[in-house]
């Protein structure tokens, strides 16, 4: 992200919004005073609606969730303060560990989307006729809702007639109902999730490849680099911005996995494919009674995991900003 400094001010550390030299020269003038004070309040005028909405619906709720996780609450009645009892229950809850383990599995396997996306992007980075249509069609899965992706893959995996089951039978393996088998269900869902995620990474890399400097490639070619060596030493370093974004969106996608679990298995069989986000939802809004406090404590754990990645992302952005200034 290239950063030109647009601000009219040169003294960046001044707590007040300094006035541009051109106008401050005539500071006795009433209209320039007006302009100065206007420049002081203008940013807040622009910011207020967005900031208020974001505070009310995002920032304050995070705090409230932290607070609710210390209570026993059914969502309607009185809240009872129980300290860290929810968290103590959590560390003795086998279902929590299953969900946590599945989240780690999601994170690990989802990362395959990054190299897979790069491979497809390289495959498609040509200029033959009709290639643009191919690129759009390869990108297609990302545009479709995860709910529809989940339905498509449920059908793909369906026992007896599903295409995947047929393919397995064709190679001599039969009788596996992926989504009803504790051993395979999470992998089956992750594959469904990888489909759109690979498409996303592919489009990031296609854009990245478009901007790789042709001079460097030519120079490397003259030096005799080609194939894998060229890819590894010349291309991939230049694709760093694309890789960074691909990794960030893939991590977020993996930890946000909810829709697919919900539509493909409802966390089953016997809770074996739950992830934290789904388990939280189940606890907080289950048909057997709402456990808001316990649900909130699961959400806090998920949030804590995410914070690690958010911090890494922000630190990197901060570095970019500093370099830009």
């Amino acid at each position: 992200m290239s950063e030109q400094v647009l601000a009219p001010v040169s003294s960046g550390n001044s707590p007040k919004f300094s006035v541009e030299p051109a106008t401050s020269g005539a500071s006795k003038n009433r209209s320039s005073k007006w302009i100065a004070s206007q420049r002081k309040f203008a940013p807040w005028l622009f910011l207020t609606p967005g900031v208020v909405m974001f505070l009310v619906y995002v920032i304050v709720p995070i705090g409230r969730s932290l607070w609710i996780s210390l209570y026993e609450w059914d969502g309607i009645g009185v809240k009872t303060f129980i300290g860290i009892a929810n968290y103590i229950e959590l560390i003795n809850d086998d279902a929590f560990y299953t969900a946590l383990y599945n989240n780690i599995l999601w994170l690990g396997l989802y990362m395959l989307a990054v190299p897979a996306g790069l491979m497809i992007a390289i495959f498609l980075n040509q200029t033959v006729t009709g290639i643009r249509i191919y690129k759009s069609l390869f990108f297609f899965p990302f545009v479709i809702s995860q709910i529809v992706v989940g339905l498509i893959f449920s059908w793909f995996y369906a026992p007896n007639f599903g295409l995947f089951t047929r393919l397995l039978e064709f190679v001599g393996v039969d009788g596996i109902a992926i989504l009803a088998d504790e051993r395979f269900v999470t992998y089956g869902i992750i594959v469904a999730g990888l489909w759109p995620q690979i498409a996303y990474c592919m489009i990031l890399y296609l854009t990245g490849l478009n901007n790789v400097s042709p001079d460097q490639i030519e120079a490397a070619r003259l030096d005799g680099a080609k194939g894998w060596k060229m890819l590894w030493y010349v291309i991939i370093p230049q694709l760093r911005p694309a890789t960074f974004i691909a990794v960030v969106v893939t991590i977020i996608g993996a930890l946000r996995s909810f829709d697919l679990v919900s539509i493909m298995s409802s966390g089953g069989p016997y809770g074996s494919s739950r992830v934290l986000s789904y388990y939280m939802y189940e606890q907080a809004l289950s048909e057997y009674g709402f456990r808001m406090g316990y649900g909130a404590s699961i959400a806090v754990v998920l949030f804590a995991i995410m914070i690690v990645f958010i911090t890494m992302f922000i630190v990197r952005m901060l570095k970019d900003e500093r370099e830009g200034c």
Binding site: V58, I62, I68, G75, S277, M280, A299, V300, L302
Partner: peptide, 12 residues
């Protein structure tokens, strides 16, 4: 805020 998991916002 854009990256937080939805579940931390859900109940409030």
């Amino acid at each position: 805020g854009n990256f937080v998991p939805f579940q931390i916002l859900m109940i409030p």
